[in-house]
Nucleic acid binder design. Structure first.
Lengths: 149, 149
DNA sequence: AAATACCCGACAAAATATGTCAAGCGCAGC
DNA sequence: GCTGCGCTTGACATATTTTGTCGGGTATTT
């Protein structure tokens, strides 16, 4: 249950690759494609969205590629996912783009899903690309605030 | 993103109706269907699964229907959802029924999804049907441990 | 001018979700 | 025993979403 589509997964991995190069130049789609094993065409779609959302800039021509518009510590995973997949909407009755649910009045579970959604967003918003980079270099032990008492 | 299928939503609502009658007799599929506006046929599928999982008992014959096997405070929403939708598996590489991901070694995001999944499960396991009942009667103000400091 | 790299929209295959339908079985009460 | 109510089971149909692919275009640097 509660699967994340590949779009979101690939998107975060792509952003990770670009973040990895932050301050060292651009990252091309081809590089991302090879490192993360995702097709060039599909990555184009994702990066297009991310560019329009202002999370990355693109540079054309030879030596071009993508660059983060902010430093990795200022970009959260939640932000990336929201751009690619829309807001967390566990149920359709909470989807802001929908019509809402006709049964709202006596729907006891509604608040349950709402609270869960908020918790998830708050978690994802608290993780930045920088933290993923740190993890890769083992600068800090793995801990996203997961299970501490 | 992170949608819950109707299976899970309807299932929790069905369990809520049965819990509502706890100690007062059985609840028929027809009653659930009318109150929650879900087709009888579809509910049959869901309750069948819940019965095999031991969350409800069925009583046949006139006056029959479904009954909780435990009191509402002992049945968590997480349990219901796991029966109907399987475990939380944000990504396929974490799905215990799958083959795992070939890129495990250098997948920095894996731990991220794992931690998120654990948080979600722990949240859902912490909410019981009794708490949903309380909410309906406004015995307690709405608060699932959502956003307190 | 050529090479490199991004941009855009249409389209298609596959998986998943969302149910419906029909026939059968088993128990309680008369 | 037998009848009615209600659950049981599995197959099947439809709709939606996901997951990409493909082809041609446009902009920019060398």
């Amino acid at each position: 249950m509660l699967k994340l589509s590949t779009k979101g997964q690939y998107g975060v991995r792509a952003m990770f690759e670009i973040a990895r190069n932050f301050g060292k130049g651009t990252t091309t789609i081809r590089e991302i494609s090879e490192r993360q094993e995702v097709s060039v065409s599909y990555l184009e779609q994702l990066l297009n969205k991310l560019r329009h959302a202002g999370l990355v800039d693109s540079v054309k021509g030879p030596g071009g590629g993508y660059v983060l518009t902010r430093e990795p510590s200022k970009v959260s995973v939640g932000e990336v996912l929201r751009v690619l997949e829309g807001p967390v909407a566990i149920t359709t009755c909470l989807d802001p783009t929908g019509d809402g649910c006709a049964r709202v009045d006596n729907c006891v579970t509604r608040m349950l899903w709402k609270t869960l959604g908020e918790k998830i967003e708050s978690f994802l918003d608290g993780i930045s690309l920088q933290e993923l980079l740190n993890e890769e270099h083992n600068i800090v032990p793995l801990d996203f605030g997961g299970n501490r008492p």
